[in-house]
Design a protein around this nucleic acid. Structure first.
Lengths: 116, 116
DNA sequence: TATATTTACTACGACAGACAAAGTATGACA
DNA sequence: TGTCATACTTTGTCTGTCGTAGTAAATATA
């Protein structure tokens, strides 16, 4: 079965994460589950990819982290919330996506059957 | 203006090149011009990216190179033609694209205006 | 005729994002 | 008691992109 290659999604992992953070602050494990379910298991972000995205985005000011205990258990989690800059970045990425899609599709044959 | 980032197109440069080679064998400079014109100047592949794509794809058996003199002038060019394997690869990439597009678009707000 | 630009590449090195591997630590469940 | 799910961190490797630089012939321009 066709798999989504990391070279394609590369550059959109951040966007996916930010999209989910727009709804509410969240943390690694949950984000990872949400990406899986929203994509209907078509895409599974790797742990290391996810956490390195968090730290990169925090460094860039797109997200802010805070520590919070899980309800019930007193287990601590690192939550992330999106910042104003993160929202702007997300917006830019959405616009870029439209453009990218248009361009790539010029080079894609939707139902290429090997004939030419 | 929004620019297409290399991290997004990454992994689709090969596909674009193969698409053009499906029509007829071609060479670096021409491919680069064609990508520019087909994308309406929205995407300009870098020379180094292009030539390294050629050699990678030749190594992978997706294209074959041959030397040919330009008409008129006796100037030699390195032409590339797509192979059977290249066509299959192109086909796979097209299928992957459909999937990728579906997934990414779950995380894109077409007209996000910064409100949430 | 001199010079700039376009054409047609090659070589080298750096960088960033993805990710494999491995480790740590807690709580739930059977 | 041991396995599984949760919730990460650290380290190091790989790949594709691309900046910089250089070569060289053909063509356009002044």
């Amino acid at each position: 079965m066709t798999e989504i290659s990391s070279d394609v999604i590369r550059g959109y992992n951040d966007t996916m994460i930010l999209y989910l953070l727009l709804k509410e602050p969240s943390y690694g494990y949950e984000i990872s589950k949400q990406i899986k379910s929203l994509s209907e298991s078509k895409y599974n972000i790797k742990e290391t990819t996810l956490y390195s995205a968090f730290s990169r985005m925090e460094k860039n000011g797109y997200v802010e982290s805070f520590s919070q205990e899980a309800e019930g258990t007193g287990k601590k989690r690192t939550y992330y919330r999106i910042t104003e800059a993160g929202m702007n970045y997300y917006k830019e990425k959405c616009e870029e996506w439209i453009l990218t899609k248009e361009v790539v599709e010029r080079f894609i044959e939707e139902n290429y059957n090997g004939n030419y």
